[in-house]
Structure formats: structure tokens, C-alpha cells
Amino acid sequence: MSSPHQTLLNRILTENLKNVLKSIESTCLRCHRDPSEVKLIAVTKYAPLEAVRELNRIGLRTYGENRPQQLVERAQTLTEDSEWSPAEWHLIGQLQRNKVRLVLPHVALIHSIDSVQLLSQIDRIAEETGASASVLLQVNTSGEESKSGFPPELLLEQWERVCSFNNVQLCGLMTMAPLTEETKTVRSTFSELQKIQTDLNSTGRHPPLTELSMGMSRDYEIAIEEGATIIRLGSILFEGTAEL
């Protein structure tokens, strides 16, 4: 039997998720896309564990964590929960090479590959352990020094080397827009990623990159308009739960 607290948490999360899904659908219709093309990841970095559990009960099955250690701890803890429905975990934050072995068995997709050296480490450990290694290449399309990711020109230069690893599945690209109210700047950051996707796919060096991970709570509608196939939402999904 649910407690009053759990009932209220469920009500808040259900309403938040309903509003987000409605927004995704209306944005897709506006730009002539199928809403099923856009995958929603709940970013759980600041969310309490009980809120993540409740969102899983409601039906969301894909979660993203910024920190490798927390991803592993949460994935292990929740998998042992008898009420937890199987779900995907995505690493969306930076990954240090010494954390690859820790995180690889627990992730469906790593969004933040920002160097050939990191890709090489993942390839080696995937070969050693037989673990699946699906990744996105993070590209710094905003040009901000504070952002991680391949500079676009460097990724193009290193593309042949990037494509040479046999134990890594390159699924697509990821970027982050600047924290700004300038819609034009945000849009250009996302449209540039789609252009890079087209340029890399045109080389024929690798199976097509199909995924574009871009857009967070403040800018996901623009990202969808510019071709996002994965959006990473945290605050907008968990809004109102911290006060409970």
C-alpha cells in the first residue's frame, strides 16, 4: 500500500512526464517528425533514489548519470529491487580512462567520448571482457573552452583512426549548447552537430551514425527541431520532488 508521500511523489512525476511527452509530441508535429524518433533519457544526477524508483514504476525505462561511480551504485542497487523494472543506463558525463572497466558492464550507451585515447581504452577493455561498448562521440560545437569534446576539425582529421576500433560500436554524436538565452546561438550549436553527422557519414568509412544526443531541460525543443534523436532531461522531470 502506498504511503501519502509516495502517492504525492507519483502524482508530481506523472504530471511532469505527461507534460514533457506532450511537449515532445507537439514539437515533433511542428517540425514534421515522428515522436517515436526521439528517445527521452531521465537525468538522475540530482534526483533522490526514491524519485528514480517512482519514475520507473510510472513507466520510464532509460536513465542517464553524469558520474560513473554513482551510475554503477544506482544500477546495482535498483537492479536488486524486486519492484524495479529492467532499464537502460547511459553515462552522459565525462569518463576517465581508469573508470572504463568499472562502468562498461552497466551502461547501454556512453555519450561522452572526447578523445581517441579514451576510445582506444574502451576498445581494449571491451575486447578483454567481452562487454558491449556502444558510444557517442562528444563534439564541442559551441567552441566554448569550458566544454569537453572533440573540436569539429580534429574529429574530421582523426576520423579514420576513430573508425579503426573493432570492439566499439559508434552510434552517433553528442553535444551541449551554451547556457544562454540567445536562441540563435543554441540552434547553431545543434545544427552544426547535424552537419558534422552528415559530413562523417558521407565518408563511407563507417556504418552510418544514426544518433544525435542533444538538448536538455532548457533547450530540448530546439534540439528536436534540429534533429535530436536523444534528449537528456533532468530538472524538468523531477521538478517539485526535492521539496517533498
Rank of each mutant, 00 (worst) to 15 (best):
P4E: 00
Q6F: 06
T7E: 14
L8C: 15
N10R: 12
R11F: 13
L13C: 08
L13I: 08
E15M: 13
V20R: 01
S26Q: 09
T27I: 04
C28Q: 04
L29I: 08
R30K: 09
R33I: 01
D34P: 03
P35R: 08
P35T: 08
V38H: 07
K39P: 08
A42P: 01
Y46Q: 13
A47E: 00
A51H: 07
A51N: 06
A51C: 12
E54P: 02
E54A: 05
L55I: 11
L55C: 07
N56P: 08
I58K: 09
G59M: 08
T62E: 11
T62P: 00
Y63E: 11
E65L: 08
N66F: 03
Q69W: 06
L71W: 01
L71P: 00
R74Q: 04
A75F: 05
T77E: 09
L78N: 02
T79E: 15
S82V: 15
E83Y: 12
E83H: 15
W84K: 07
W89D: 09
H90K: 06
Q94N: 13
Q94T: 15
R97T: 15
N98K: 06
R101Y: 09
R101V: 09
H106E: 12
V107C: 08
V107N: 02
D114C: 04
D114F: 01
Q121P: 11
Q121D: 14
I122H: 04
D123A: 02
E128Q: 13
T129N: 10
S132F: 07
A133V: 07
L137I: 04
Q138D: 01
Q138K: 13
V139K: 06
N140Y: 04
S146E: 05
K147I: 00
K147P: 00
F150N: 05
P151I: 04
P152C: 07
L156S: 13
Q158H: 06
W159A: 03
C163L: 06
S164I: 13
N166W: 15
Q169D: 15
G172E: 04
A177E: 09
A177M: 04
P178M: 00
P178A: 01
L179T: 15
T183I: 10
T185E: 15
R187W: 08
R187L: 09
S188E: 13
T189F: 10
F190L: 03
L193K: 02
Q194T: 13
K195R: 14
I196D: 00
S202E: 10
T203H: 07
H206V: 09
S213Y: 01
S213L: 02
S217Q: 14
S217P: 12
D219P: 08
E221H: 11
I222W: 00
I222R: 05
I224Q: 02
I224P: 03
G227A: 05
I230K: 02
R232H: 10
F238H: 06
F238N: 02
E239A: 10
E239P: 11
G240I: 05
E243I: 12
E243C: 11
